[in-house]
Design a protein around this nucleic acid. Structure first.
Lengths: 203, 203
DNA sequence: CCACTTGTTGAATTGCCGTTCAACAAGCGC
DNA sequence: GCGCTTGTTGAACGGCAATTCAACAAGTGG
C-alpha cells in the first residue's frame, strides 16, 4: 500500500513512471499495470488520476522533450564563445551511451510517428526548435566573423540536427564501431566544412 | 475460406501480410489476428506456417531491408557517371512521401532497436552496407578526378546515410516544410561541400 | 471530533487474444 | 479412384489486461 500523496505529486510520479515503462516496453507496448507497478500503485489508482492511459503517455513524452530541450539550452547558457557553444551543443544532442533513456525514448517516438500524428507533431516541433537553436549559434558566429557559413544557416542547422538524430539512433542500437565520441567527430567534420572553422576548443 | 496454396506461396503471402500489419500497428503492436486478416486467413492458418509470430515478423523485416537495399543498387546499376550515381543514390534513400511503406517500416524498426537487439543488428548491418555503397561511389569519383573529397570516404559516407535516415524520419512524420525534394536539396548541400563538385546533372 | 473530500485498494467483470485441436477439404502419388 | 499428406477452418479453452466499483484509510475544514 503506497503512501497517500497530493494530486500534483502523484501526477508527477506517474509521469516519471510512465516514462520508465515506455522505455522498457515502447510507447505502444506499455500496459496499465506496468505503469502502476513502476509507480508502486495499483492500476485503479493510475486510472483515478488518468482515466485515459494515452493522456498520461502524451504528458510524459511532452515533459520529456521539454526537459531534453531545456537541458541543452542550460548547458550552453553560460558560454560566450561561438565555437564552444557549437561544440557543446553538438555534444549535448547525442546520447551518452546506448542506455541513455532520454534519447532512447525519443527514438521510440520517432518510430511511431508514422502512425501517431500527435507524436509526429511533437517531434516536428522539437526538430524545428533545435534547428533554430543552431541557427542562433551559427548566425552569432558569422556576425562576429568567427564562422564563414558555406550556405544559409537554416540548411546547416537542419543538417546538424539531422546528423544528431541519426547518430542517436545508431548509438542506441549499439553500433559496434560508432559510439558517442565517434559520432561527435563525424558531426564536427560536417560542422567544420559548414563554418570554415577548425572548431578546436582552445584550452 | 481462402484458396489453398503451396507452402512457399503462402509463406510469401504471410510475409507481405505481416509487413502491412506492422506498418499499421508497429512491429511491437502487431496481433496475430491482424496478420491473419491481412492474409485473408484465420489465426490458425498463420500459426500452421509460423508457430512463432516473431519469426514471421523477423523474416518480413529482413526481406524488406533486403528489398530496400537491392532496389537502391538496381537504380544505379546502369549508371556510369559518378555525379549521376551519387545524386540518384541520395534520392533513392529518401521516402517518396509520408506514405512510403518501406521507409515507414524501417523507421518503426529503428524505434524499437533500443529494446530489440535483433532488429538493432539488422539495422546496423543495413547502415554499414549503405555506407559502403556511398564509399564506392565517392572513391570512384575521386579516382577519376571528378570529386575532391573533403575528408575520408567513410566519414562522408556515414554522414550521407545519417542525413538520409534522419530526413526519412522527418518526411514520414509529415514535417510541413520538409518534403522529399527539400530533403534531397539539404543532403546535396552537404554532398557538394564534401565532394567539391556542384553535382548538377548535365541533361 | 465529526462530516466530507480525496486517494487507494482489491475483487468482480468483461472482453479480447493466443493456443490447441478435431474435422475437413484439396490435391498428389500410385 | 483411393489413401495420404498438406493446408485450412471453427470452436473451445485459458489467460491476461482494462474497467468498474464498493469499501476503506487519511487528511481537512468547520
Amino acid at each position: 500500500m503506497a503512501t497517500r500523496k497530493t494530486r500534483s505529486e502523484r501526477r508527477a510520479d506517474l509521469v516519471e513512471a510512465a516514462r520508465r515503462a515506455m522505455i522498457q516496453h515502447g510507447p505502444g507496448g506499455v500496459l496499465l499495470n506496468q505503469v502502476a507497478e513502476e509507480a508502486g500503485l495499483t492500476s485503479g489508482a493510475v486510472l483515478y488520476h488518468y482515466p485515459d492511459l494515452s493522456d498520461l503517455l502524451l504528458e510524459a513524452n511532452q515533459a520529456g522533450m521539454e526537459r531534453f530541450y531545456a537541458e541543452r539550452m542550460r548547458r550552453i547558457a553560460g558560454l560566450t564563445d561561438p565555437v564552444e557553444k557549437l561544440v557543446v551543443t553538438i555534444r549535448s544532442g547525442l546520447p551518452t551511451d546506448a542506455e541513455d533513456s532520454d534519447v532512447r525514448l525519443l527514438c521510440e517516438l520517432g518510430g511511431s510517428a508514422g502512425r501517431n500524428r500527435v507524436y509526429a507533431a511533437l517531434l516536428t516541433t522539437l526538430f524545428d526548435r533545435q534547428v533554430s537553436m543552431y541557427q542562433t549559434i551559427l548566425e552569432l558566429g558569422a556576425a562576429r566573423g568567427i564562422f564563414t557559413l558555406a550556405t544559409d544557416s537554416q540548411t546547416i542547422g537542419r543538417n546538424l540536427v539531422a546528423l544528431e538524430d541519426a547518430y542517436g539512433y545508431r548509438i542506441v542500437a549499439r553500433h559496434p564501431t560508432l559510439d558517442a565520441a565517434t559520432a561527435e567527430e563525424l558531426i564536427l567534420s560536417y560542422a567544420r566544412q559548414a563554418t570554415a572553422n577548425p572548431l578546436e576548443l582552445s584550452r
